[in-house]
């Protein structure tokens, strides 16, 4: 219990440091655009592939469960609903969390154990402002954008499955998508993605900053980061769903 309280306290102090660095964000503008490209473009292929096939399997499962007693339009409706409020943001969060969160921890952890973070401090550069703030802002911007792509790819994947495997007319599938497209649900999904982006960059950076003891320490920090990111994404998914929907 003491460890949990300590952990939460340390993360809270880290967030406080992050807030303190925000007024000097203008100095990190270039670094932020670099991170946006790194996180966004780098994650694009995996987000596209994963969501395409998840969309396909969602359509297939929807048909498997209800095609006998529900109209075909129901398949498009279930795909878009699932992707806008849940699958799009959560799947993207977990994929990017695993890919980017671990990379951030490994990079910053290596910098910590090779004294590069200390070197920044001796150059009178705030390492939180230089290393963490650009990643957190990039995460907050990129995750909603990736989620839009994820929703789109889910619907495309669902469409392919519906038309090619389930032999539903494209117009009926599209009609289903239109029927269940609700702007407030899209916004809700994007709010989730925004929060997940912050969680991924923040927890990845925190564990990297706290890495100790050489390569083994960086490995352990990376594992802890990914576990904490996944748990927090699931918890915040529930909390935001309660508030928004």
């Amino acid at each position: 219990m003491k460890n949990v309280v300590e952990y939460v306290g340390e993360v809270a102090l880290f967030i406080k440091e992050l807030f303190r660095s925000i007024p000097k964000f203008y100095k990190s503008f270039g670094l932020t655009t670099d991170q946006i490209i790194l996180i966004g473009i780098g994650s694009l292929p995996i987000v596209i592939v994963t969501n395409f096939f998840t969309g396909a399997v969602t359509a297939y499962q929807a048909a498997f469960q209800g095609r006998e007693y529900l109209p075909d339009v129901y398949i498009g409706m279930s795909v878009i609903k699932a992707f806008m409020i849940e699958l799009g943001p959560v799947l993207t969060g977990l994929i990017v969390g695993g890919r980017v969160g671990s990379a951030i921890t490994a990079e910053l952890g290596s910098m910590r154990i090779t004294e590069q973070i200390d070197a920044l401090e001796t150059l009178a550069i705030d390492p939180v402002r230089y290393l963490v703030l650009p990643r957190v802002i990039a995460g907050a911007i990129v995750l909603p954008l990736l989620t839009i792509i994820a929703i789109l790819m889910g619907c495309v994947g669902g469409g392919f499955c519906s038309v090619l495997l389930l032999h539903i007319k494209p117009i009926i599938y599209i009609e289903g998508l239109k029927l269940q497209f609700m702007a407030h649900e899209l916004w809700g999904g994007l709010i989730k993605a925004f929060a997940f982006g912050i969680i991924i960059a923040l927890m990845g950076s925190y564990h990297g900053f706290k890495a100790t003891g050489g390569a083994e320490g960086v490995g352990k920090a990376t594992t802890r980061a990914v576990v904490s990111i996944f748990i927090l994404i699931i918890i915040f998914d529930f909390i935001i769903a309660q508030i928004v929907f």
Binding site: T114, A119, A124
Partner: peptide
């Protein structure tokens, strides 16, 4: 710190 410089044991260059 802007009046001080430090050379680390492992150089600590940003790689």
């Amino acid at each position: 710190r802007q009046r001080m410089g430090m050379v680390f044991q492992g150089s600590a260059l940003l790689d």
